[in-house]
């Protein structure tokens, strides 16, 4: 069970090479197949996630959540997806057509790109970049542009306000996001995600870096535009923020990309702070799924527990609290590493 997917991949390349392809082309074909697998799994997983979030939020508010279609309402998301797919695609006549059309496409491309570096099990990583963690942060920062394109292209005041909030929020929270990970990188001594996982063989980084975990969690919530930091959407005041003018499949693409980002960030947190795919009894690829889902449940829990905070509070919280705290954490980590070296560990 442990090497199930690796064996499948090896069998696939072996079969291609038997057909007469050179190893280079076989590897390329494998990459394409891996890419298709990511997109399929992500999309299929989203239907489960949306159902789960609606169910969980229902329980939080003493409701039942979706309960009509299928057992426990589990076919509700599929019905919603079919509805969205068949909806008319409306583009406002005053919209900036090209920007309006391409924004959701770029958004989903950027969010799927994040999965390239995530280790999904022992040796199950598409590319093991030596700057994997940095790749995740910098590619993730591109999603700001996509939201801005959506908000600008819609030519609608709510959309533009939403986009500007999104940019202000995401650029401010990128700083504590990156700074909080530096403590982990200092201990692991590498930006390579497989090395970071290997460095947690004895003890998870959530134990060594609790402050970093909490700051990263808060910054990631803001970066994902999730409640209580979902000001860019804030449907009560902005009717949907940057997505106001989007309908049907284009809107669904944004929704898809947001959940894709959520899964990717949760998987990164599991990798960086919770020991990655390491764990007893179960195969490694199952462990990362379990840990990712646990973190996503915490995201759901936060969203449906806390009220939305105000925009200026959000900004001052990042600049005046989170950034100093994460800088102090870097200092503490450096001092700690030197102390332990001096102790002779």
């Amino acid at each position: 069970m442990e090497h199930l997917f690796i064996n499948i991949a090896d069998a696939f390349t072996g079969w291609l090479m038997n057909l007469g392809l050179s190893p280079w082309w076989a590897d390329l074909a494998l990459l394409v197949v891996q890419w298709i697998c990511i997109v399929t799994i992500v999309t299929a997983n989203i239907t489960v996630l949306i159902w789960l979030e609606r169910k969980v939020s229902g329980f939080f508010q003493e409701r039942l959540g979706p309960n009509r279609l299928g057992p426990f309402g589990c076919f509700q998301t599929i019905a919603d997806a079919i509805k969205l797919l068949t909806k008319e695609d409306i583009i406002p006549s005053a919209a900036d057509k090209l920007v309006f059309r391409t924004a959701p496409i770029f958004f989903i491309i950027v969010s799927v790109m994040l999965y390239v570096v995530l280790p999904m099990g022992d040796g199950m990583q598409i590319v093991d970049l030596d700057v994997g963690l940095f790749f995740f942060i910098s590619v993730g920062s591109l999603s700001t542009i996509c939201l801005l394109m959506a908000g600008w292209g819609s030519n609608n005041k709510w959309s533009l306000i939403g986009a500007m909030r999104a940019v202000a929020q995401m650029i401010s929270y990128e700083v504590p996001l990156a700074l909080s990970l530096i403590g982990v990188v200092m201990i692991a001594g590498s930006l390579r995600l497989s090395n970071i996982v290997a460095a947690q063989g004895n003890i998870w980084f959530i134990v060594l870096q609790p402050i970093a975990f909490i700051t990263y969690f808060i910054a990631a919530t803001a970066e994902l535009n999730r409640g209580p930091f979902d000001m860019p959407e804030a449907e009560q005041e902005l009717t949907g923020g940057a997505y106001t003018e989007y309908t049907g499949m284009r809107w669904a693409l944004f929704f898809l990309a947001e959940y894709t980002n959520l899964v990717a960030v949760s998987a990164l947190m599991a990798t960086v702070f919770l020991g990655g795919w390491q764990g007893p009894w179960l195969p490694s690829w199952l462990w990362i799924i379990v840990k990712t889902y646990v973190i996503m449940m915490v995201f759901f829990w936060l969203k449906w527990t806390f009220p939305r905070i105000r925009m200026d509070q959000l900004m001052s919280f990042s600049w005046k609290f989170l950034i100093p705290v994460s800088l102090a954490n870097i200092f503490l980590t450096g001092a700690g590493i030197h102390f332990f070296k001096w102790m002779g560990w």
Partner: peptide, 8 residues
């Protein structure tokens, strides 16, 4: 990160 991400 610096150019493409912050140009927004």
């Amino acid at each position: 990160m610096v150019y493409a991400g912050a140009i927004s």
